[in-house]
Design a protein around this nucleic acid. Structure first.
Length: 395
RNA sequence: GGGUAGGUUGAGCAGGUGGUGAGCUCCGCUGACUGUAGAUCAGCCGUCUUCGACUGUGGGGGUUCGAUUCCCUCCCUGCCCA
C-alpha cells in the first residue's frame, strides 16, 4: 500500500527531510540543522552514522549502539550479498530483523569496494566484476541494477546508487572524467531499477578534485529525482584544503535543494566540523571504530594511543566526565592492560568510547548550530590537531 | 660420582664441523588508519658518532694467518644410571 502525498497526489517519499534551521544569510557558515524522517524513525542532522559493514558495528551489539546514541547506522551491500546473502536476509525478515536493529539503516552500494578492492575487480560501462578474495575467490558481477536489487532485498531505509569513485591522487583528469560519466549513467539506471516504495535512494556526486567536474557532477546528480545527495570520492588521500575546496564547489550548487547532503566516508572530529561548516548533513566512517580497535582513543584534546607504556599506571578514565561505559567504570591502566593482553573486552570498550565521542561531538555541533554559536565552535577548534593530547600529557 | 644432550642478542628458536652469526617468532617501543579484504599494518627492537661502524655463539686457556667450529679445562642446565 503506497501512501499518496496529499499535495502532489503522487506516491509519498519514503523519507522526508526538513531543514529546521537553514544556514545564516550572512554567509559565516553553511552549517544547518535538519530532521530526517525514515520508515524506522527519525534522525537529527548533522549526523554521524557508525559503520556496520557485516550487519554489525564491530565489537558492539544494538544495545551498545542505543546507549552510545547512534541514530542510524550504515551496512554494506557487497559484504552482505556475499555473506550471508541478501536473499537469505530477506527470507529471515530483512536486515533490521536479522541484526535486531530497530532504527534506520543506510546501505552502501558496493561502490566503495570499487576503490578498496582495486586489485580484485575490473570496471566496465555496464558494471563491476569483483573477485571475493577474502572468502573463496569466487567472481561476482555488480551492475547498477544488481546493487539496487540487493539493497531492496536487504530492506534498508536508504539505498545508495552504485558509483565509481576514484582515488584523488592516483587518477588522471581523464580517469576522473570517465568514472564520473559512468557514475552518472549508473545513477539513472539505479533510479529506473529502484521500485521499493519504503526505501529512499540517494545519488552520488563524483568528479574528483577537478572543480569543473565536481560542478558538472553536482548539476547532473541534483537534476535527478533522488531522495538525497551523496558526495563521494572525498575521504581519501586529499588534503583537508582540497576536500573543502571540492565541498565549496558542490554545496553552493545545492543551496536551494531541499534534500539532505551526505559526505561519504568522513569521520575524524576535525574533518566533521569542517564539513558541517561546509554544509554537510550526514556522515559515516569506519575511522572511530577502527582506530579504537587498534588502540587509539579520542579525547577533546586530541588522541591517546593506549599502547603507549605511559598508560600502564594511569588510574584516570580515558576522558574525565565521559558518559561511555569505558569511562564510567575503567581506568586507562585497565584498558592498556586489556589491549596488551589481547582481551576482547578492549575492542568493545574502546569502540564504545570513540563512537560516543563522535556522536556527542555531533550533538554539540547541532546544539551550537541551534543557538547560533557554531561559528565560534569552528574558531575554537581551529587549532584542533591529532597530537594535541600527547602534548598536553607531556606538558 | 658415571653417562648423555645442551648453553646463540629479554624469551623461544634458526644457522654455523677453520675464512660474513645481528636471521625468524614472541615480548617490548613508536607510528599509521576516514562510503571496513583492517581485533590490522608499518618501522624499531646488542652498542655507537646509526646510508655506516663496532661488539656478540657460557668462562678461561691452547692450536692456527684466522676459532662459533678443533683441543684442554672450568661453570651452568635437562635427562639416564648410581
Amino acid at each position: 500500500m503506497i501512501e499518496l502525498d496529499p499535495v502532489t497526489r503522487t506516491a509519498a517519499r519514503p523519507i522526508t527531510f526538513d531543514v529546521l534551521k537553514p544556514a545564516p544569510e550572512n554567509g559565516t557558515t553553511r552549517a544547518r540543522l535538519g530532521h530526517l524522517q525514515t520508515p524506522h524513525g527519525e534522525v537529527q542532522t548533522p549526523v554521524f552514522m557508525p559503520v556496520g559493514t557485516n550487519a554489525t558495528v564491530k565489537a558492539l551489539d544494538p544495545e551498545d549502539l542505543d546507549e552510545i546514541g547512534a541514530q542510524i547506522i550504515l551496512c554494506n551491500t557487497y559484504h552482505l550479498y556475499l555473506r550471508p546473502g541478501h536473499e537469505r536476509i530477506e527470507r529471515l525478515g530483512g536486515l533490521h530483523d536479522f541484526m535486531s536493529w530497530r532504527r534506520p539503516i543506510l546501505t552502501d552500494s558496493g561502490g566503495y569496494q570499487v576503490v578498496s578492492l582495486g586489485e580484485f575487480r575490473s570496471v566496465d560501462d555496464d558494471g563491476v566484476t569483483f573477485r571475493a578474495t577474502h572468502l573463496d575467490g569466487s567472481v561476482h558481477r555488480f551492475t547498477p541494477e544488481h546493487a539496487i536489487a540487493v539493497q531492496q532485498a536487504l530492506g534498508s531505509d536508504i539505498a545508495v546508487v552504485l558509483d565509481q569513485p576514484v582515488p584523488p591522487h592516483a587518477s588522471s583528469r581523464r580517469e576522473v572524467a570517465e568514472a564520473m560519466v559512468r557514475t552518472h549513467a549508473w545513477a539513472e539506471r539505479c533510479l529506473t531499477a529502484h521500485t521499493r516504495p519504503d526505501q529512499a535512494l540517494f545519488g552520488i556526486i563524483q568528479g574528483g578534485l577537478e572543480e569543473d567536474l565536481r560542478a558538472e557532477s553536482t548539476r547532473v546528480i541534483a537534476s535527478l529525482p533522488f531522495d538525497g545527495i551523496c558526495i563521494g570520492g572525498l575521504a581519501g588521500d586529499e588534503s583537508a584544503a582540497q576536500r573543502r575546496a571540492a565541498l565549496d564547489v558542490c554545496v553552493p550548487l545545492l543551496a536551494d535543494d531541499p534534500r539532505p547532503r551526505y559526505l561519504m566516508g568522513l569521520g575524524s572530529p576535525a574533518d566533521l566540523l569542517d564539513a558541517v561548516d561546509a554544509g554537510i548533513d550526514m556522515f559515516d566512517s569506519v575511522l572511530p571504530a577502527r582506530v579504537a580497535r587498534n588502540g587509539t582513543v579520542w579525547v577533546p584534546e586530541g588522541r591517546l594511543n593506549l599502547r603507549n607504556s605511559r598508560f600502564l599506571d594511569d588510574p584516570a578514565p580515558i576522558q574525565e566526565g565521559c558518559r561511555c561505559r569505558a569511562c564510567r567504570s575503567f581506568s586507562r591502566a585497565y584498558l592498556a592492560h586489556l589491549l596488551r593482553a589481547d582481551e576482547l573486552l578492549f575492542y568493545r570498550l574502546a569502540t564504545c568510547h570513540n563512537l560516543t565521542f563522535v556522536i556527542d561531538f555531533m550533538a554539540a555541533i547541532r546544539a551550537a548550530i541551534a543557538d547560533g554559536t557554531f561559528p565560534q565552535l569552528v574558531r575554537a577548534q581551529a587549532g584542533m590537531r591529532d597530537n594535541r593530547a600527547a602534548e598536553a600529557l607531556d606538558a
